[in-house]
Design a protein around this nucleic acid. Structure first.
Lengths: 341, 341
DNA sequence: ACAGCCATTTACAACGTTGAAGCAACGTTG
DNA sequence: CAACGTTGCTTCAACGTTGTAAATGGCTGT
């Protein structure tokens, strides 16, 4: 198998610890020794053994990213940025999929399958603040995209309430009056649904317009398509879908029913996944700055890992833009309504 | 922190090794001792430290999955299955993104950022067989979705040539005669482009039909849309795109040009990403069995890791189906042309 | 009675790494 | 020139686990 520090030490004619010092960039090593050791290191293609290093000192250089599903485009895109941001600070990323199940979220919080990782970025769906607070595991934790009221952990997300209000105002500004919301949920204590629903309601209330709310179990195209079929009976002239997948499913249903977008029904989504930039019609949506979200998440985690554990939890908002496209503007679609914090 | 074997041993009044034996289900432990130990185990909520176990056993329980980009839907979907399949055998998965760059692929092959992992599943784009053969690292390796001629490593993929032939035959069977291919590449020695192009050519040659081939740099919607714009001048009546993203981009361009799909231009893709099942029109495509691909990849890797290193490399084909949908069939779209190995 | 066997349990070493402590050589300071 | 701090390196121990070898004691067969 691979060479160990001992093998390198033997070849370089120094002690194991000196090799360790070189590997770890310890300052007080003479240039001559350093050169000798480095030559031996590369000759033997030395690689540190994670298990041993971890056993000895508790740091692994590996963090875990736990999210519902990797194949939801929003999470795939976000993961990409998180892996890149983590790479910047020298971390590798293990991905765990919770499927949004409470059990799996508990397991992950309780330790990533018994392996030790330096930190955990969790995108929670099912778990509540109380349970989170009662967590015994002391691995550094950052919550992503999810507001858990008074949660005991650092948290980064866009301002979902405000973004939902922006979308709704956009639809109202286009003259729509029967604006439906698609994507409320029964089961989720802490999902993204509640704040988006709240923003939608605030806007409608401010304009004295009626609400129509459709629920779904999961945020996927099929559910969006099915929920839209039911919504069509209420004859809405606009639909605010709580994510882009739901919106793309809804679009499919609307077009299949022989209605025009946006003339008959305007559609807006949330997430700005790449699909929505090339769908027919292109999709008006809230575009969170995913690179920024990822950067902040990694940064918060880094501070937690390196700093002390007892600082109060922080809540950080990432910026977003409202991307207005064909699904609300028609042929003149394409453009951004400006940057928003 | 968690309790160690020593803590449990102390509480139960036995040796550390006896506790270890109980934990590992060793047969020759007296019922009385076993009961005592188990009581102590549950009282202290003992959990094995995997780092220590792995150090002792020389395994990390972690594999790496290296692919071009996580946010390409095909890879996101595949990753999901691979993570799940790896979880089945108790492995965690670290994800590395190569961006399809030769440098990054080399680095990954040379060791995942100097960390040691039990195995590597690589989806190569740029690297060639010779360089792969010259690799010094002895980490178990499985190549995914990519045929490297006489490559020195296990490999799993669908039969790209045959699948491409099936798609082309399908288009010919619909009466199309000016069938373009979209997705050839200049730079890739070993990408998926060559076998798909070969299958396309074989079919056209068999029917004495002319070729029209468009090249792209990357397999993304934007490139598909741009390449399609150029292709339209050749007035094709069908386009075989080498993946679904290219096809979705192409569809956007075709519809924007005022042409009908499939009446004027039939479109087929490759990968069966979820987008294509809900796009307008829905997309005819080759659907590799991704769960099977993932399962085989993990299984091959497991055999490599547990078995001996010197067995000859194996080449395994996963099954696929040709999913015929609206983009070639029109309104009657929806259905599969049957299972194919 | 004694060797031989078995079940049960233990002590010890080792996996690869790094923190703590220590030692020798050198330069600086009073 | 003695005392001291710094640099450069080493030795030692320990992280938690499990394989190996060996100790203990009871039972069997002669």
């Amino acid at each position: 198998m691979g060479a160990s520090l001992r093998d390198v030490a033997r070849l370089a004619g120094v002690s194991v610890k000196t090799v360790s010092n070189v590997v770890n960039g310890y300052a007080h090593v003479s240039p001559a020794t350093r050169a000798k050791v480095e030559h031996a290191l590369s000759q033997l293609d030395y690689r540190p053994n994670l298990s041993a290093r971890n056993l000895r000192q508790g740091r692994t250089g590996v963090i875990a990213l736990a999210l519902p599903e990797l194949d939801a485009p929003y999470f795939a895109e976000l993961s990409r940025f998180i892996i890149d941001a983590a790479a910047e600070v020298g971390w590798l990323v293990i991905i765990e999929q919770t499927g949004g199940s409470l059990d799996r979220e508990r397991q992950v919080l309780d330790g990533v399958r018994r392996h030790r990782v330096d930190g955990l970025i969790l995108s929670p769906i099912a778990i509540g603040a109380d349970e989170l607070a009662a967590r015994t595991d002391d691995t550094a934790l950052v919550l992503l995209g999810e507001r858990i009221h008074g949660g005991p952990a650092d948290h980064v997300a866009v301002d979902n309430v405000r973004a939902a209000r922006d979308v709704t105002e956009h639809l109202i500004g286009l003259g729509r009056r029967r604006i439906a919301a698609l994507g409320a949920q029964d089961n989720s204590i802490s999902g993204t649904a509640p704040p988006r629903l709240a923003g939608y309601r605030e806007s409608l209330a401010a304009h004295a317009l009626p609400e129509t709310v459709a629920k779904v179990d999961r945020y996927r195209r099929a559910e969006g398509a099915a929920a839209m079929a039911a919504l069509l009976e209420a004859r809405p002239d606009a639909v605010f879908c709580f994510n882009d997948l739901l919106a793309l499913g809804a679009i499919r249903t609307i077009l299949a029913a022989g209605l025009r977008i946006p003339e008959d029904v305007a559609v807006a989504g949330f997430d700005d996944i790449e699909d929505g930039r090339f769908s027919t019609p292109t999709l008006t949506t809230v575009a969170p700055d995913k690179a920024q979200l990822a950067g902040i998440a990694v940064d918060l985690l880094k501070q937690r890992i390196e700093g002390r554990t007892d600082r109060p939890p922080r809540e950080v908002h990432a910026t977003y833009r409202l991307m207005t496209r064909e699904s609300t503007l028609g042929g003149r679609g394409g453009g951004a309504a400006g940057d928003l914090a």
